[in-house]
Design a protein around this nucleic acid. Structure first.
Lengths: 305, 305
DNA sequence: GCGATATATGCTCTTAATGAGTATATATCG
DNA sequence: CGATATATACTCATTAAGAGCATATATCGC
């Protein structure tokens, strides 16, 4: 038996009072692209106060988001906590950011924006994006002129030279672009900025964090299913994964994986397309819902050159 | 060109003032086991206030830890932010937890404790730990009696039946044990608790989070090197990895990996052991320090049955 | 019925990574 | 010399990952 005392620790450091705000990155899929819910013409995330009546931070977040937007939140995870130094400095503001998935239901009237409007270089599903990466490579090369290590870092993060593109490094890519002064919010911003919307404060950095996290998450948990309707076709599932990962996949291999992991069950229903054979509708296998750790859907990629 | 305005968003939600505390999980390696720095006989982490003069949360953390303990922090990352409901309820207390690695320098007089004293089942380097896992399996089976899905979850998380042990699931394992009432801090604690020290508040949960994170981290970043002396033998490196992962490794395969990834450079020095051939001393390859993402050291495990 | 379109599936193949085993140098000390 | 421990060289089986080729199957409009 263990001696377990529930007394308070004697180390209660005297803290300073801070304002605490909850920031929500609410992700959904529209038109084959991951979207976020925004305020103020795409420049801010919805945010709300953390009040005393809330039991936990997560519950507090769910509470006001659901009350304010009427949306049901799916997979939710904490992203990062930061102290916003942009605010007026009377007292510190601590912002706790969360990412949550929203199931695409009806086209609501809320302001929504594609994540790739903020990071066009992160969408590598079409060969047309290659020219942007080429531009970035050129400008990074100029920045890294003479610094071998710096160029190594750029190359490995952006999948240049012999390195391969790693979709989970969105945050690192944004940070390098920031350091190189290629995004407008960088203080030493030089020359013309790269295409891509910017946001207030460090919000675009938060969004890059969210993108990294969601790409990592869909690999080893069935979180994608919180973005899809309850009944979906396998193509829809694949396209959702492609939209999140920002790269195309090999259809046959994708299905091989999905089937052998028993991720989905077929339903009796069929899709009704304008043309072509109707697609079978599937639903997420309820048994897999519980032990989701092993459901590692490593992405079956196809080459995009 | 992008229209980048640095005005404030109109959504300044009126927040409530909170106490903000920084909690530090300071990890180092002693006697072939990962240790943490503790207060109050292993029941609390060092913690400090976040004050206005600090530029960022991370800097604030580094600041007071280094001032208080005199320790230099290596790899640092934010773990999780939570609202402590155990405190007196005048105003909320928000606790922001960080994990930081400390390079083993000299044996300082600080209070330190092995992580495996808190989670004995997480150390699977020796076959002797099998009996504890057996006990856990038995008690979980009793808890999951009649609930097939619940048992599936236990089995997959603890690597029972056909499932394999996944060392990164320490947090999930702790949570299951909590739910099953097998740890003393669980409210519906039934019967005798499992061996393992407990801590104040949710601190043991934070520690489980830290263990999960560090095990994940050493896979794809060279963070281990922040726990080792600057010059080390390959065996020391392997034993550090084994200590963190809680499982033995195959020596030949481990070296194959380390060498082919150019993670280390040999130095001219040698170890001076009591007996046997002196081991070559190595140091972390400085070129790899910058682009550490590719340095994925997937653990070459050896079977422990 | 036929072609266009799109879903659905089966099979092969190469390459690389992983886990595991066997054997054997090499160096130091008592 | 023998005990001890480092260091290294190979081999081998299994599996997963990436990619390609081919071919059913179902619906629609003409």
């Amino acid at each position: 038996m263990i001696n377990h005392q529930k007394t308070l620790p004697p180390t209660a450091a005297q803290s300073v009072l801070c304002e605490t705000e909850l920031v929500a990155v609410l992700v959904s899929i529209h038109h084959n692209a991951p979207h976020i819910l925004t305020l103020d013409h795409g420049q801010a995330f919805p945010s709300g106060p953390f009040t005393v009546e809330h039991r936990s931070l997560q519950k507090g977040m769910r509470n006001w988001v659901e009350r304010q937007t009427g949306l049901q939140l799916g997979h939710t995870e904490q992203l990062y906590t930061f102290a916003d130094t942009h605010h007026a400095q009377k007292h510190q503001v601590v912002q706790i950011s969360y990412m949550a998935f929203i199931r695409q239901t009806c086209d609501h009237a809320l302001d929504t924006q594609s994540i790739y409007d903020y990071f066009p270089w992160e969408d590598r599903r079409h060969t047309t994006s290659a020219s942007l990466l080429h531009t970035i490579a050129e400008r990074l090369k100029r920045w890294a002129q003479g610094h071998t290590q710096r160029w190594q870092r750029c190359a490995s993060i952006f999948g240049l030279e012999d390195y391969v593109w790693n979709d989970e490094l969105s945050l690192q890519r944004y940070e390098v672009l920031w350091e190189a002064g290629l995004v407008p919010e960088a203080t030493w911003h030089n020359g013309a900025a790269l295409p891509g919307l910017s946001m207030y404060h460090d919000y675009r950095r938060i969004l890059a964090t969210a993108l990294s996290r969601m790409r990592a998450k869909i690999r080893y948990t069935p979180a994608v299913f919180d973005l899809l309707p309850h009944h979906f076709t396998l193509l829809q599932l694949q396209q959702a994964m492609e939209a999140l990962a920002g790269r195309p996949m090999h259809k046959q291999n994708f299905r091989r994986l999905v089937q052998q992991q028993k991720l989905v069950n077929r339903t009796a229903e069929y899709d009704s397309p304008a043309q072509g054979r109707p697609a079978q509708l599937y639903r997420f296998a309820p048994e897999t819902a519980e032990n989701c750790y092993l459901a590692g859907a490593t992405l079956p990629l196809s080459s995009i050159s």
